[in-house]
Design a binder for these strands. Structure first.
Length: 960
RNA sequence: GCAGGGGUGGCAGAGCCUGGCCAAAUGCGGCGGGCUUAGGACCCGUUUCCUUUGUGGAUGCGAGAGUUCAAAUCUCUCCCCCUGCACCA
C-alpha cells in the first residue's frame, strides 16, 4: 500500500505550536522528582549545522524520555559569545575577507546582514537568533524562558562572583607561559588568528652550549635528542647564513647563533646581538663537547636552516641519517676534517624492528644511521625528503627500542637517558630549554610569521593543585558516565589537566577581577554557568549591578538570609527567596551533555569548578558524551564544502527523520552518518507506521488468535528491552527495536493473517510512545490518529506486562519460520536435481522421546554447564550411544545439537502441539513456499527420512 | 613521544566485558527471482570456498605467539589508523 506522503514541515510546525500554547516544556518547581538536562551551549560565530543536533538532540531525547518516565524535567539553553573568534570574525569582515564572505553566503546569510556584521555584538545576536530558531524547528523541549547569553551583564556578574571564590580559595596562580605570538601586531596568536586556522604547536627543545676551543664564546645547538651528545663528532652550520655573537640576559658569557634564529627566540630570551659573523667564520673554529670534553670541528651542513632552532646543530653521524649523509658528501668533496670523522655509537638498536618480528629486513651495519638509509633503499646522495623518512624511522625505533651503550647509562632506554642528560646539562650550565613551533612556519591573518613568546606573569587556574585534583577525582567517582567507556577518557583528562591560563588581552567577555586589563578566557567562564539557568527567568529584570556576590552567595551557597541579602542588594525579597528555591530544587539531579572534543577542557573544568565553588549536593551527577555527525561518510569541513546547515536538513527531510538518523541510529559514542539514503529509509518506515495507524479501522476485531498472542508477546518484550536501553541511552538498540523491528513484526503479523484492530492499535500506540522522545512530532500525530486526546510528549512511558511475554508462543512462530526456510532449501535442491518444480512438501514431526532428550540437555541451562557435566563423566545422561564416544566428539555433538535446535531452550512444545501449530500455519506456509504443505507424525510416516526429524525441525519430504 | 579510542565480510557497523546456538546481527550495495504496463516501494533467495533430497566441511574477524576441549571474544608481542597534548572554541 502506498499511502500519502507525510508533510513533515506542516505537521512539525503544528505540534510545535501546540506544545508552546500548552507551555509543555516550561519547568516549574513541584513535589515531583526533578531532572535537569543541560548541554554545552553553542558558540555563536556561525550558523547551526546538523552536527549540532547530535548533542542538543541527545539531550532532548533524554529530557523527553525522563519526562515520560514521570520526572519533572528542565532543559534550558543559552548561548556562548565570549572569547576571540567572534571578534576575529568581525575583524575579517571589516577587512572584507572575500573567502569568509563567500562561506557565509553559502550558508544563506544575506548581504544586508553581512554588512552589519562588522560589529561583534551584532554577529553574536544574529547567530544566537539563527540557532534558537533552528532549535525550535528541531523540536527540542527547551524552556526558553531561562535563556542566557554569556556576554550579557548578569552573566558577567556571575562570573565575577565565581572568580572571587576561586581566588579566595587560592586556586589562581601566576607564572611563565609560552604562546604563539605575532611580533608585528603584538598579539597572542591562537588557531582563530592564523591563516587556514592552524593551531601553533609549541614544543620544548634542548639547547646545548659548546664552548669554542681556545675562546670564551659558546655555540648554541638546539636538539630533540640531547642524549646523543656522546656521539657528537662535529657541529654543522649553514655556511651561507649570517650568524651573530650575542649576550643573553641571565646567562653568563657570549653565544653564537644564527641571526634568523636569534630573531625568532627574541620573544623568549633577551638576546643582544654584539657582533655579526659569517657562517664561514664559524667553520674556522672548533668546539669542546661539554659532556665528553672532546674537541670537535665545525663543518658546513647543507640541511641546516638558519631560522630554525639556533641555526647550529650538533652532528651525530652514527644515529642521524642527515648528519651521516652530510659527512659522506663532504668526504666526496674532499673535506679533510670530514674524512677524519669516525662516527661514535651511543645506542644499540635492532634496525627495522618496527616492521614486526621476522618481517624486518636484516640490514647489517655498524652504523644505525647507515642502516636506516639502506633500509629505505637510499644512500647519502638522496634528497632531503627521503632522508627525512629515514630520520623519522631512526628516531622512532631508537627512541622505542634503543638501549644506551655509554658508560654510566648502559642499558637505559632513550627517553630516560634524555631526561637525565637534560638535567645534567642544565645543572652544569651547558644546557637550557627553549620553545619552538613544531609546525612552523605559521602565519597570522595579517601574514606575519608567528613566533613563540614566553609571557611572564600569566594568570592560571591551578588545576594541578593536589587537593583540588583529589576532590575532583572523588567527585568524579560518583558521576554516572555515559557511555561507560568514556569514563576512562575523562579520568585521564582529570589527572592530566594542570595549569590553565585564564587571562587574555583581547576578546569579548568578563573582565578578570584581579587585573581588569584582561578578559577571562572563554572556556574558563563557562564551567558552572548551568546553575544560572535555574534562576535566569527570575533575575531577568533585576538591574545587573545589584547582582552582587552576596546575592549569589545566598542563592547558590545558602549563605545569609534572603531578608538581609534583599536589603543589602536592593533586590526584592521574593526574587531572592524564589531564586534560592529554584536552584535548590533543580540542581539536585543533573545530566551534562557534550561532544567528545570537550572532554579534555570543558568537561574536566566543569567537574573541577563545581567541586571548588559549589556545595557537594550540587556536584555533577551524570555526564553524557556523544559522537559527532558525518556528512555522507565524511567529516564535515569547510574545505570539503559538505557542512549541512540544520535548517536545510530539516527543510529537506523533516526534523523527525533527521533526529532519528542523527541522534538515535548509532551508538552514543560513535559518529552518526547523515545521508539521503539513511534519512529516506527512516522516512519510509515512519510512513509505514502512519499508514498502519490510519488503516486500523478497516481491521476486524474478535477472538485473539495465535498470531495476536505472538504480537502481544513481542510488544511486551520490546517495551522491556527498549526501556532498559533508554535508561543506558543505548539509542541504537532502542531505535532499531522501536522502528525497524516493529515494522518487521507488523509485516509478519499481517502476512500471517493477523487483523485484529484492538491488538494492532495497542501495539502501534505503545510503539508511538516509545518513538516520541526520538521523533516527537510524528508521534504526536500518530497518537491523535490512534484516538489520543492528550500530548504523547506528556504521556507516561508504556509499561511492559511480563505476563504477556510468552516464550512458547514466540518459539512456535520461530519454528514456523524455520520450517519455511528449511523447506525452501530442500525444495531448491530437489528442484535442481530433478529439474522439476516441487509441488508438495511433507513435514514429518519428531516423536516426543526426542523432545525429552533435548530438554534434558536444555535443563542444564547453558551449554557450558552441560559440557561440564559430560566432562565430569556424567555423560550417561546423554544416552547410551553418547557414552561410547570420546569427550571431544560428545562436546561437538552437544554444540551442534544446540545450533541445530536454535539454542538450548527448554521448550514445552509436544509433538501434538507442533502438529497443531504447523497445521494452523499451513496456509501461510503454502503461500510462502509456493507448494502444498502436508503434515504427519514421525511414527506414522513411511518416509525414509522420517527418523531425521528433530524437535522443532521436522524432517522434510519434497515431491516433484 | 605521552594519553585515550580503534582495526570485523564489497561498504557501513554490531558482537569482545561475561569464550561455545558466530560463517559472524542490522543497514546499504551487488546478483537472481516474485509483484508490476514500467519504475519505485515491497517480498523471497543469494552475496568466502567446497559439498549436499537438507541443516556437512574447510578457511576466516590487523599480524604472530600463547591459554583452553573450544578464541572475533582471554593473555603477550608487534604493526597500522583516529583523537587530544593546553590557553583554543
Amino acid at each position: 500500500m502506498v499511502g500519502p506522503m507525510i508533510n513533515y514541515g506542516e505537521l512539525e510546525k503544528k505540534w510545535q505550536e501546540e506544545w508552546g500554547k500548552a507551555r509543555l516544556f516550561e519547568g516549574y518547581v513541584s513535589d515531583k522528582e526533578p531532572f535537569m538536562v543541560t548541554a554545552a551551549f553553542p558558540y555563536v560565530n556561525g550558523p547551526q549545522h546538523i552536527g549540532h543536533m547530535r548533542t542538543y538532540g541527545t539531550a532532548d531525547v533524554l529530557a523527553r524520555y525522563k519526562r515520560m518516565r514521570g520526572f519533572n524535567v528542565l532543559y534550558p539553553m543559552g548561548f556562548h559569545g565570549t572569547g576571540t573568534p567572534i571578534l576575529a570574525l568581525a575583524k575579517r569582515l571589516q577587512a572584507k575577507d572575500e573567502e569568509l564572505i563567500r562561506d557565509l553566503k553559502l550558508f544563506g546569510i544575506p548581504d544586508s546582514e553581512l554588512a552589519k556584521m562588522t560589529d561583534p555584538l551584532y554577529i553574536a545576536n544574529y547567530f544566537a537568533g539563527e540557532i534558537e530558531s533552528g532549535m525550535h524547528a528541531a523540536g527540542y523541549s527547551i524552556d526558553w524562558r531561562r535563556k542566557l547569553f554569556s556576554i550579557e551583564p548578569a552573566f558577567g556578574k556571575f562570573i565575577e562572583w565565581q572568580f572571587s571564590i576561586l581566588n579566595a580559595k587560592g586556586l589562581l596562580t601566576q607564572g611563565r607561559h609560552p604562546v604563539g605570538w605575532c611580533p608585528i601586531e603584538n598579539n597572542a596568536v591562537g588557531m582563530h588568528d592564523t591563516r587556514h586556522d592552524v593551531e601553533p604547536e609549541i614544543d620544548e627543545e634542548t639547547v646545548v652550549a659548546f664552548k669554542v676551543d681556545g675562546g670564551e664564546a659558546k655555540m648554541l645547538c638546539a636538539t630533540y635528542r640531547p642524549e646523543t651528545i656522546f656521539g657528537v663528532t662535529n657541529l654543522f652550520v649553514n655556511e651561507g647564513a649570517a650568524y651573530a655573537l650575542c649576550a643573553i640576559e641571565g646567562m653568563e658569557g657570549r653565544y653564537y647563533l644564527a641571526k634568523g634564529a636569534a630573531g625568532a627566540l627574541a620573544y623568549q630570551l633577551k638576546i643582544t646581538q654584539l657582533q655579526e659573523v659569517a657562517g664561514t667564520d664559524l667553520l674556522a673554529m672548533a668546539c669542546i663537547n661539554p659532556m665528553t670534553g672532546e674537541r670537535v670541528p665545525v663543518l658546513p651542513g647543507f640541511f641546516v636552516k638558519e631560522d630554525v632552532g639556533t641555526g647550529i646543530v650538533m652532528s651525530v653521524p652514527a644515529h642521524a641519517p642527515f648528519d651521516y649523509a652530510a659527512i659522506e658528501r663532504l668526504k666526496l668533496s674532499g673535506n679533510q676534517a670530514a674524512a677524519a670523522i669516525r662516527p661514535v655509537r651511543v645506542l644499540e638498536v635492532e634496525v627495522g624492528r618496527s616492521k614486526g618480528p621476522g618481517q624486518g629486513e636484516a640490514v647489517p651495519s655498524e652504523l644505525p644511521a647507515l642502516s636506516y638509509l639502506r633500509l629505505m633503499k637510499i644512500d647519502a646522495s638522496a634528497g632531503d625528503e627521503a632522508i627525512e623518512e629515514a630520520t623519522k624511522l631512526a628516531y622512532k625505533e631508537e627512541n622505542r627500542f634503543g638501549r644506551m651503550l655509554v658508560k654510566g647509562y648502559e642499558g637505559m632506554g632513550e627517553p630516560e637517558a634524555r631526561e637525565r642528560i637534560r638535567k645534567e646539562l642544565a645543572a652544569s650550565g651547558s644546557g637550557f630549554t627553549i620553545y619552538v613551533l613544531t609546525n612552523s612556519p605559521v602565519y597570522c591573518r595579517a601574514g606575519h610569521t608567528v613566533a613563540v613568546r614566553v609571557v611572564e606573569n600569566q594568570w592560571f587556574l591551578n588545576y594541578g593543585d593536589e587537593k583540588w585534583k583529589a576532590a575532583a577525582t572523588v567527585a568524579f567517582a560518583k558521576v554516572n558516565v555515559l557511555p561507560e567507556k568514556s569514563r576512562r577518557v575523562l579520568e585521564s583528562a582529570l589527572g592530566w589537566i594542570g595549569l590553565r591560563a585564564v587571562a587574555r588581552a583581547q576578546g569579548l567577555g568578563t573582565r578578570f577581577p584581579i587585573d581588569p586589563a584582561y578578559i577571562i578566557e572563554s572556556l574558563s567562564d563557562s564551567t558552572i554557568y548551568m546553575t544560572l539557568y535555574t534562576i535566569m527567568h527570575i533575575i531577568r529584570d533585576v538591574p545587573p549591578e545589584r547582582l552582587s556576590p552576596s546575592f549569589f552567595d545566598c542563592v547558590f551557597l545558602g549563605k545569609g538570609g534572603a531578608d538581609g541579602v534583599a536589603k543589602e542588594t536592593g533586590i526584592a525579597y521574593d526574587t531572592v527567596r524564589k531564586a534560592r528555591e529554584e536552584f535548590t530544587y533543580w540542581y539536585r539531579t543533573t545530566s551534562r551533555h557534550s561532544s567528545p572534543d570537550l572532554i579534555f577542557n570543558h568537561l574536566t573544568m566543569y567537574l573541577y569548578n563545581h567541586v571548588a565553588v559549589l556545595p557537594e549536593g550540587c556536584w555533577p551527577k551524570q555526564i553524557v558524551v556523544n559522537g559527532t555527525v558525518l556528512s555522507e561518510g565524511e567529516k564535515m569541513s569547510k574545505s570539503l564544502g559538505n557542512i549541512v546547515p540544520l535548517a536545510e536538513g530539516i527543510r529537506k527531510y523533516g526534523a523527525d527523520p533527521l533526529r532519528f538518523v542523527v541522534i538515535a541510529a548509532v551508538d552514543l559514542f560513535n559518529d552518526s552518518n547523515y545521508s539521503p539514503e539513511a534519512v529516506n529509509g527512516v522516512s519510509e518506515r515512519l510512513e509505514y507506521l502512519y499508514n498502519t495507524a490510519s488503516s486500523i479501522d478497516s481491521l476486524d476485531s474478535g477472538e485473539l488468535r495465535h498470531i495476536d498472542y505472538w504480537l502481544y508477546s513481542r510488544l511486551n518484550r520490546k517495551i522491556g528491552a527498549v526501556t532498559e536501553s533508554m535508561d543506558a541511552l543505548e539509542l541504537r538498540v532502542a531505535s532499531t527495536e522501536i522502528l525497524y523491528n516493529s515494522i518487521l513484526e507488523l509485516r509478519r503479523y499481517f502476512a500471517r493473517g493477523g487483523s485484529n484492530a484492538v491488538v494492532v492499535r495497542e501495539y502501534v500506540s505503545a510503539v508511538t510512545l516509545m518513538l516520541c522522545p526520538i521523533s516527537p512530532h510524528i508521534s504526536e500525530e500518530l497518537w491523535h490518529m490512534l484516538g489520543g486526546s492528550t500530548f504523547a510528549s506528556a504521556e507516561r512511558w508504556p509499561h511492559s506486562d511480563s505476563s504477556m511475554v510468552s516464550e512458547k508462543v514466540e518459539a512456535e512462530e520461530e519454528l514456523v519460520e524455520g520450517v519455511i526456510a528449511d523447506a525452501r532449501q530442500v525444495m531448491s535442491i530437489v528442484g535442481k536435481k530433478t529439474g522439476k518444480q516441487v509441488k508438495g512438501v511433507r513435514l514429518i514431526v519428531a516423536e516426543d522421546w526426542k523432545r525429552r532428550a533435548s530438554n534434558l540437555i536444555a535443563s542444564r541451562k547453558n551449554l557450558s554447564v552441560a559440557i561440564e557435566a559430560v566432562r565430569a563423566g556424567k555423560e550417561k545422561e546423554l544416552g547410551e550411544s553418547a557414552a561410547k564416544v570420546d569427550e571431544k566428539t560428545a562436546i561437538d555433538f552437544l554444540t551442534s545439537l544446540a545450533r541445530r535446535m536454535s539454542g538450548l531452550k527448554e521448550s514445552g512444545i509436544t509433538q501434538a502441539d507442533e502438529i497443531a501449530l504447523l497445521d494452523e500455519a499451513r496456509r501461510y506456509m503454502t503461500s510462502m513456499i509456493g507448494a502444498e504443505v502436508s503434515i504427519e507424525a514421525e511414527s506414522a510416516s513411511r518416509s525414509a527420512r522420517a527418523n531425521k526429524s528433530l524437535p522443532g525441525r521436522p524432517s522434510i519430504d519434497a515431491e516433484a
